[in-house]
């Protein structure tokens, strides 16, 4: 194919795409409009299943399968990090010395660890009721633990962070999501279908059928995944040094 022909083909394809795209954009609901065809259906479906937070209903009920994919992406990414950032031959570990953090900073960190943990768990637990959910809460929980490194000492973090346990937790969270999905299949319905559990009273924590359970599974997976991810980065930045240079 000559260069000219290729450019012609490209122009043709581009023009076709532009025309179709423009036509589709003209049909879109207006920006910020009060009515939206998809939004109205999503809200209706969420309310039918007693889920107060429609976004959670979309994530863990109507589009639960998409969330499984996203969860797996995080899982795979963390797995890749663990493999890439392992301690290789020629590298050795050194123990960082404790640092003398100023007392107000240290005290603030120690007080804030439980406060932030509690807030993270609150965000996870209320995912089906108010903004938030497993992902947001899970990240807050993992961040809370690392406050020990940031504001106190690396060794304080190591004491409460047996990485092996969090690796198991990561896998367990991922597995729990799959098992809950398969339970729907065994219950005579579709994979991840929200038909198994009673929908409960609207705007209470055990409402929404399987939504809170899937939410909790995601929360566990994300919290553990972030801890494992940061553990690898911290190992590399704080402990592992090039053996040849010393």
């Amino acid at each position: 194919m000559s260069r000219r022909l290729r450019m012609l083909l490209l122009a043709l394809g581009g023009a076709g795409f532009a025309a179709l795209f423009a036509a589709a954009c003209l049909e879109l609901p207006h920006f910020g409009a009060a009515r939206h065809p998809y939004g109205e259906r999503a809200v209706h479906a969420a309310l039918a299943r007693h889920t107060a937070n429609v976004v959670s209903a979309v994530n863990f009920d109507q589009r639960a399968f998409d969330t499984l994919g996203e969860e797996s992406i995080l899982f795979a990414a963390v797995l890749g990090t663990v493999v890439l950032l392992r301690q290789t031959r020629g590298e050795r570990q050194v123990r960082p010395e404790p640092v003398a953090v100023a007392r107000p900073v240290r005290r603030y960190s120690l007080v804030m660890v439980p406060v932030a943990l509690l807030t993270g768990l609150y965000v996870v637990a209320h995912g089906q009721l108010s903004p938030g959910g497993g992902f947001q809460g899970g990240v807050v929980v993992a961040t809370a633990l690392h406050l020990l490194y940031i504001g106190v000492d690396y060794q304080a973090l190591e004491r409460i962070r047996p990485v092996g346990g969090y690796e198991v937790g990561d896998a367990a969270g991922e597995a729990a999501y799959l098992v809950l999905g398969a339970a729907g299949l065994l219950g005579g319905s579709a994979f991840l279908a929200n038909t198994l559990l009673p929908y409960g009273t609207f705007n209470t924590i055990p409402s929404g059928g399987t939504v809170p359970l899937l939410n909790a599974a995601i929360g566990m997976e994300v919290a553990c995944a972030v801890v494992v991810l940061l553990a690898r980065f911290l190992d590399q930045a704080v402990e592992i040094v090039d053996g040849s240079g010393e």
Binding site: S56, V123, P131, Q136, V139, T143
Partner: peptide, 9 residues
Amino acid sequence: PDVALSQLA
């Protein structure tokens, strides 16, 4: 707000 929370987290 859900997206805002994710962004902040």
